[in-house]
Design a protein around this nucleic acid. Structure first.
Lengths: 238, 238
DNA sequence: ACCTGAACACCGTTCAAGT
DNA sequence: ACCTGAACACCGTTCAAGT
């Protein structure tokens, strides 16, 4: 089953099942324009997200990405505008997973909760995207639309736009922080390292946290609920 | 004033005033062990943080770092364990700026506020460190001590350790998110891009935000205060 | 239009040579 | 011990050549 082209993917221990991965297992491609294009922007973006999910963003090199798609790295430049454009494409894929225009019709408490949970869950599924996506300026229409939808949901139900924006950023940072903290491969606070480093309380609370990964969403939702209560209480007396 | 060694730093437009930068302006160094070491771990870390603050973490290459210190990049490996160890060293410098053991003697509300403000301010001064520091596991004693101090401050005043940890992570994510959002060179939500992209509410609330950078701390502190109220209200009825 | 191999500048890191 | 220049593997990107 091993081919010359599959070496980079094989080196990572990945045995893909996608069409792209299968393509990488076919015979080496010859130079010249193929009868049908081997790539699309969408396919490149999806494969990039898959690599980032599996191996982290740093592992998503043009070489590995191309290899997984059954082509050589220069081919990618015919479809995407260099590696930095992958950021926008990946963001669109993640935002698509939770963006829901229907929240504008809900009472703001429900909209806030639905938005927060969806946001959290999407990034909890793709924790390796957070480092880059949370620190790169937004440059796509879908993400703007997603933010606009949230603001509209709040403002149409009596919120001040600035307050809604402030609450949105707070919610976003909370969701991203928790999604990363509990779902990233490497825990920020590693119990193995903390043990015997003179921080007994920290050691105690992080001890069983590996098993608590499943309850991360519960923890986030508890905080989310408290936030909604907080905003409801301050609704008329800011 | 220009020398051969100064080219990398000069190319960035930086005219340093530190001892290190002055060293870079001296005559080229000859091979062989110098009479007195040209570098220390501390000096390397400080110069790295300066570069990161000015040009971003990606710009902090071994070559530029060495150039600014008046040596060649391989010399750095005699003092630090490769580039990844810079992360730990930079984290220590930032944490040092706000870590305050005295908070254990305060009422928990004061400790919470002091810790939160200090944490926010330190990272607001170094927003370019956030992307890397917030997503790299902690591997230094000072940072563990800083976390332990916060937990001790809460637990000694009646908090449940797990609840204190949860609150600590929430506060941390909020502080980091706001510190980045309002202080990073590139705004996540760039008013210039958002204008005329079909997101009127978002355009409205981000319009004047460049000028509001000064009020970022006020906004964060308002949210911090609401958080403290939230926790106080839930203190006996969780 | 779209893929390839060759080439280029850049990066982190290693290492023998020199003091 | 500690600095240097040379060398190595790797990366993103460009481009002429080929279909």
């Amino acid at each position: 089953m091993q081919t010359k082209q599959g070496n980079a993917a094989d080196a990572t221990g990945i045995t893909g099942t996608t069409a792209a991965a299968i393509a990488a297992d076919t015979a080496p491609r010859r130079p010249g324009r193929p009868s049908r294009p081997a790539l699309t922007e969408e396919a490149i973006a999806k494969e990039a997200l898959a690599i980032i999910d599996e191996l982290g963003w740093a592992a998503c090199t043009m070489k590995l990405l191309a290899s997984r798609l059954g082509v050589r790295s220069p081919s990618l430049y015919h479809h995407i505008d260099g590696q930095h454009s992958l950021i926008d494409l990946v963001r669109i894929l993640v935002v698509r997973e939770f963006h829901d225009p229907a929240i504008v019709d809900m009472p703001w408490e429900d909209a806030f909760r639905t938005f927060g949970i969806g946001y959290y869950r999407a990034f909890a599924r793709h924790p390796n995207t957070i480092q880059v996506l949370s620190t790169t300026p937004v440059r796509d229409g879908l993400t703007l639309e997603m933010y606009e939808t949230f603001l509209r949901s709040m403002v149409d139900h009596g919120w001040d736009p600035s307050k809604a924006f402030e609450a949105m950023l707070g919610l976003e940072h909370l969701a991203l922080g928790f999604a990363y903290e509990w779902n990233a491969e490497d825990l920020m606070l590693d119990p193995a390292y903390i043990a015997n480093h003179g921080a007994p309380l920290l050691a105690e609370v992080t001890k069983e946290r590996t098993d608590q990964a499943a309850s991360a969403e519960t923890t986030f939702m508890a905080l989310l609920g408290r936030h909604i209560d907080m905003y409801r209480n301050n609704f008329d007396s800011p």
